[in-house]
């Protein structure tokens, strides 16, 4: 820990309430309290040693260089020519259509994940079947893979040369280079989020609560809706928000399978890439700012939600 309580004049008293401010946030903690005898009285002294200052400065500097500065640079670039060009860059048909499409399909993906992810989490925790552990470890794979690899996998799976692709084509269904393809890609990439946030909540859930509901005359469906679901909803929301922000940001897989038709199947991240290729960094930055702000709001919402949950339970 950062706290150095052996400074001269301080006391080591095991029974004293040592207030550690570092539980909530590692970086922005209150200085640890120190009990000191002064003028024959026991006093509480906040101590900050030079060592602490050095470590904190280092960490804050690290955060500044790696996170805050790049973000600031994007905002600066976006507004470099003032409000009007920023606004014009966003209201260009291709740009706002790309943003709208991305947000719309991310919402669709989030809803799909909320439903299917919750169901998968239930199956993984509650059911005992052959290959459960293998399946459980496979859940994280889509997140761990390079996204270009994911894109290539979907491309070969759904392409017209593949078995599945040609079979689908016989029915006139195409799952590549359209909005469905984008949703498939987003769902694939965001696979673990809801499952991994809901799973521990189901594991912690007291089975006796469920049985208590049965003994009070409730059916299985009623029990699920009134007892089990409320217990896992915080996990669904947190996982859903993570899914949403990840889907917004996806580039690698979507650039391969979306088809990139401007105004039709071009997502925001691919649009940004195109703008940079065309040396329009200000336009790219303007769209980036929208995505960045959305992502930031979502992450902030997740934080707020988890904090509230910490108080309730």
């Amino acid at each position: 820990m950062l706290a150095d309580r052996t400074a001269e004049g301080s006391l080591h008293l095991a029974h004293m309430p040592v207030v550690s401010g570092c539980q909530e946030s590692f970086l922005f903690c209150r200085p640890p309290l120190n009990y000191v005898w002064r003028d024959r009285k026991l006093k509480v002294m906040p101590t900050v040693t030079p060592y602490q200052i050095a470590v904190r400065s280092l960490l804050i500097g690290y955060l500044l260089v790696l996170v805050v500065m790049p973000i600031a640079a994007v905002y600066a670039e976006g507004f470099s020519l003032g409000w009007t060009p920023f606004w014009e860059a966003l209201t260009a048909v291709i740009a706002w259509k790309a943003i709208l499409l991305t947000v719309k399909l991310s919402v669709v993906t989030t809803v799909i994940q909320a439903v299917i992810g919750t169901m998968s989490a239930f199956v993984l925790v509650r059911c005992r079947f052959w290959g459960r552990r293998l399946f459980n470890s496979l859940v994280d794979l889509p997140f761990a893979l390079p996204t270009a690899v994911s894109g290539l996998m979907l491309l070969t799976l759904l392409g017209p040369q593949s078995l599945l692709g040609s079979w689908l084509q016989a029915f006139g269904i195409s799952l590549l280079f359209n909005q469905t393809a984008i949703v498939i890609g987003m769902v694939f990439i965001t696979f673990p989020f809801v499952i991994r946030t809901v799973q521990p909540l189901i594991e912690q859930f007291d089975l006796a609560e469920e049985q208590a509901s049965y003994t009070l005359g409730a059916s299985k469906v009623y029990t699920f809706c009134k007892v089990l679901l409320p217990a896992v909803v915080p996990g669904i929301i947190a996982g859903g928000l993570l899914t949403f922000s990840r889907a917004l940001a996806e580039f690698g897989a979507l650039s391969l399978i979306s088809g990139n038709l401007p105004g039709k199947t071009q997502v925001a991240s691919v649009f940004i890439y195109g703008e940079i290729e065309n040396f329009n960094t200000q336009g790219a930055a303007a769209v980036s700012i929208v995505l960045l702000t959305l992502s930031f709001l979502v992450l902030w919402a997740v934080q707020a939600l988890q904090k509230r949950r910490g108080i309730v339970t």
Binding site: D206, A208, E209, Q211, A212, S213, Y214, T215, L216, G217, A218, S219, K226, V227, P230, A231, V312, T313
Partner: peptide, 30 residues
Amino acid sequence: IPVQDRGIGFVFQHYALFKHMTVFENVAYG
């Protein structure tokens, strides 16, 4: 006859109260 239709009341060892419900909602559940 399934548990729901046996007309019993069951008190569990660790109470198994519904954590996300108030006392009122717990008692009113049945």
